[in-house]
Design a binder for these strands. Structure first.
Length: 404
DNA sequence: TCTGGGGTCCTCGGGCCC
DNA sequence: TCTGGGGCCCGAGGACCC
């Protein structure tokens, strides 16, 4: 197989691109600066103005932000201060207090995400969705795909994506998905990198192990403790010892990955396995004193999960809750129910029962609700729906018993 | 004043059945 | 009747990804 890995740079505000800009935080766009814009000129419709027309000085600076949250992404100018994704906003504020802070706008990202993916599938239909800004493409059978080792097709994709969205895009071309993804990072941003099998030793082996998709911070630490820092060192390490340290599956995978071996296919369609909603509170809550607020949030999360299920046409058979305590310890509880459901009241009732199985004396930082074992609504027979009636939760879990 | 939200997949242990 | 083991499902937790 010949694979592309393409990722677009969704962060693109022409007037801000050379400034340190971070995207993140929990507050909405309006809360952040609409008031200041309105004060500037009450007659203008600031709310519907594209970001690119808003004067730079209006945007709040990182140092003025109060609250929790992490950075979703940052411009290269901001990164030069040591700022990166997943960093706490408070920490980032210390590194660069004058960085411009913009709120995340997932609606907007999803719109552009759909647009760039539709451009790609028109040209190369065998595409795997890997999130809002990334895809894999199998171009083995795409007309003209082999010209200059794929470079011609990659340039065409970049041009068409830019024409449709004004977004730039990095593309890696390689014999498989694993290598294509690593290749795409070599010429970031907006580059094209064609990687051949013969280049693995020269181009991939000198990179740190963490660059392999599937080696995270934990595994990286464990590898380092074995004296393995670079992919080349991992490739030359005794595979039997890797199996000893990391188990049969993962150990073998590590060895193969370091040699650039990956036989996974480009998956063009997949069904969701679970669907969830969660929220982190602005301060850690106490079940006794914040019972009302916790109850209201819990109900809202159940309603959101329910409406997500309905909108996407699924029912769930496993109800789950998730709590994160003030010490960052996370616990989950799951329960598989008789008949699949998307009903908010039913979800709330089953989820409420799960609360009995967790420690509620500690302060709560995060609360989440999850539905798993999803089935398509259209696949659930009328018979099953009829059965469901008889298993709806009874009043055994009365209001007085509710934990929150 | 560190540390989001929405997912997937894997492992491990326990219960149950054969 | 007792013990052992394999297969399967479920629940909990953890690692990883964007």
């Amino acid at each position: 197989m010949d694979a592309f890995y393409a990722s677009v740079e969704l962060l693109r505000y022409p007037q801000l691109k050379n400034l340190p800009v971070v995207i993140g935080g929990a507050r909405r766009r309006e809360d952040m600066y609409l008031e200041r814009l309105t004060a500037l000129d009450p007659t203008r419709d600031w709310k519907n103005l594209p970001l690119s027309e808003i004067p730079v000085e209006i945007f709040p600076r990182l140092s003025t932000y109060v609250g929790r949250g992490v950075i979703t992404t940052a411009t290269y100018a901001a990164r030069s201060f040591g700022i990166g994704s997943a960093m706490g906003l408070m920490k980032a504020s210390q590194l660069c207090p004058d960085a411009v802070l913009l709120p995340v706008d997932f609606e907007e990202y999803r719109k552009y995400s759909r647009l760039f993916k539709s451009v790609i599938t028109e040209i190369a239909p065998v595409m795997e969705d890997r999130g809002v800004d990334e895809v894999y493409i199998d171009f083995t059978n795409t007309p003209g795909g082999q010209r200059e080792g794929g470079r011609v097709l990659a340039r065409l994709l970049q041009k068409c994506i830019f024409d449709a969205t004004q977004l730039t895009c990095s593309i890696g071309v390689a014999p498989n998905k694993l290598l294509a993804k690593m290749a795409s990072e070599i010429n970031k941003p907006k580059g094209i990198c064609v990687l051949y099998e013969k280049d693995i030793q020269a181009q991939i082996w000198p990179l740190p192990c963490r660059k392999i998709n599937g080696i995270g911070p934990k595994t990286d630490e464990r590898l380092k403790s074995l004296g393995i820092n670079l992919i080349g060192e991992l490739a030359l390490y005794d595979p039997m010892l890797l199996v000893e340290h990391f188990g049969q599956n993962y150990g073998r995978w590590l060895h193969r990955a370091a040699h650039g071996i990956d036989e996974s296919e480009v998956v063009t369609h997949s069904e969701p396995v679970s669907l969830s909603r969660e929220t982190t509170f602005d301060r850690d809550l106490n079940v006794r004193t914040d019972k009302e607020r916790l109850g209201a949030v819990f109900t809202k999360l159940c309603e959101q999960v329910s409406s997500d299920l309905k909108r996407k046409g699924y029912l769930g058979k496993t109800v789950g809750i998730k709590l994160k305590y003030d010490n960052f310890k996370t616990v989950t509880r799951d329960q598989t129910i008789e008949a699949p459901t998307a009903d908010p009241k039913e979800i709330r009732q089953f989820a409420g029962q799960l609360l009995k199985r967790v420690d509620l004396t500690k302060r709560i930082r995060l609360l989440g609700v999850r539905m798993g074992s999803l089935v398509r609504l259209e696949d659930v027979s009328q018979q099953n729906l009829a059965d469901k009636k008889s298993t709806e939760p009874s009043s055994q879990f009365g209001v007085n018993e509710e934990l929150f």
